[in-house]
Simulated scan of single mutants.
Amino acid sequence: MKLPPPRGPVSAALTAALQAAPHDLPAGLADGFGDGDPITDEDLQLTLFVCYELHYRGFDGVDDGWEWQPSLLGLRAAAEQRFESALRRLVEPLPETAPADVPRALAGLVAADDGPSLAGYLQRRATREQFCEFVMHRSVYHLKEADPHTWAIPRLGGRAKAALIEIQIDEYGGGQLDAMHAELFRTTMSCLHLDTTYGGYLPQVPAVTLATSNLISLFGLHRRLRGALLGHLAAFEMTSSLPNRRYGNGLRRLGGSPVATRFYDEHVEADAVHEQIAAHDMCGSFAAAEPENASEVLFGAACGLAVDRLFATHLLNRWEAGEGSLREPTLQAA
């Protein structure tokens, strides 16, 4: 991935520093973040994304030694504190839930979610250009789909660990390259004549899109948030089957071939099974084994639902206004 253009003073200083050998970043760099909502702060979300990506595939020309550079980790921690505080303000207080009731509480959160129907719009009304924009947004996560949740595997034991591995095996296509969900998404992008480069649309997507990915990295890279990571995955799986059916039908309406829609069609069946595994075998078992962390499962699920609502609202508001949803014009599908 190439380093993206900066979006403010902090991301500008960070990306400039990353082009040199690892060294100390300026003290107080995080003071340059604005006073707005951290979830939609372009400078903060890009800074977080860049810091997190050093733990995934890194950037062209950036020394791998930056991954654990102490002052960079300090900057990341300061950005994370702002982000996590904003998330807790967004979703808390959550109802008190006994560990044994966590699966039922997860189902209640999903049932109560009243976000706008982005999937319904894409199924019935979206133009081909709008559908392509949606795919560009989602490429930031889907081209590394499952990787952030995999951070939880070495941090779990027992039934919760086995259940997570069962889900992840499907996400990774049972070890078959052409069945990996990230590769299926790459094929969808290729069918739409979009750039399939990992991170290729990073410069175009707004902060709220970056937040949907940063949220999972935040949970995945902190052992103390392992319960939130499982809750996020459970909410992801429990709200996936019907929307993906609608995405697939929307792409078919726009002339998409069976090859192009396979990513969405695969999720309709797979996630219907994953829903039960995630809620009961994974989150239920985790809450039973670690009752003191049961509330974090609901926190993670609520965050996933809330940030997705913000993402959907952004796209639909822009499209209803006759505008594009990306940050800058880009070549659309032919």
Rank of each mutant, 00 (worst) to 15 (best):
L233P: 00
P116W: 10
L225F: 15
G36V: 07
D60V: 11
I153V: 15
L215A: 05
H280N: 13
L46Q: 11
Y247E: 03
Q332H: 15
Y56Q: 11
A179D: 01
G227L: 02
F236A: 04
V297Q: 13
L310Y: 01
R327H: 02
L48H: 10
V102H: 08
L192G: 15
I169V: 15
P203S: 09
G32P: 09
Q81V: 12
T15W: 03
A235E: 05
L143F: 07
E133P: 13
L106A: 07
R57S: 15
Y56F: 11
D281S: 14
L18A: 00
V102M: 01
R82L: 15
D43Y: 04
V140E: 05
R138I: 03
F311Q: 13
V208F: 05
P99E: 05
A270R: 08
F299M: 01
E145T: 01
G108H: 08
A20Q: 06
M189H: 05
A207M: 04
V110P: 03
L218A: 05
E80N: 07
P26Y: 09
V50I: 09
L215T: 09
G157Y: 03
Y141L: 07
P206A: 03
L225Q: 14
R252K: 08
P258R: 06
A98L: 10
P329H: 15
G34S: 11
A86R: 08
E296I: 01
T330H: 01
L194W: 02
A260V: 13
G108M: 00
T187N: 08
Q45Y: 02
E92W: 14
L202V: 15
D178G: 00
L90P: 05
G65V: 02
A301R: 09
V273P: 00
A105C: 06
D37M: 10
D63V: 10
L192Q: 07
V208L: 13
L44F: 05
P99M: 07
R124N: 11
A162W: 01
S71N: 13
C283G: 02
H23A: 15
G115E: 00
T330L: 10
F299V: 14
L194C: 08
H232A: 12
I39K: 00
H222P: 00
D101L: 04
T313K: 12
Y121C: 09
T97E: 07
P291W: 08
Q332C: 10
S213P: 00
S240W: 09
F33Y: 13
S217I: 00
E67Q: 12
A30Y: 14
H149M: 04
K2Q: 13
L73M: 11
A146V: 13
R124I: 11
G175F: 00
M238K: 10
A20H: 09
S117K: 01
S71W: 04
E296V: 02
C191Y: 04
A207Y: 05
G28W: 03
G231A: 06
I277L: 05
F83A: 01
V10L: 04
D64I: 04
L310F: 01
A77M: 08
P5A: 10
E92P: 02
D308H: 13
A288Q: 06
E84Q: 02
A77H: 11
T196N: 08
S139D: 12
P116C: 10
E67A: 15
F185N: 05
L229P: 08
E145G: 00
M180G: 04
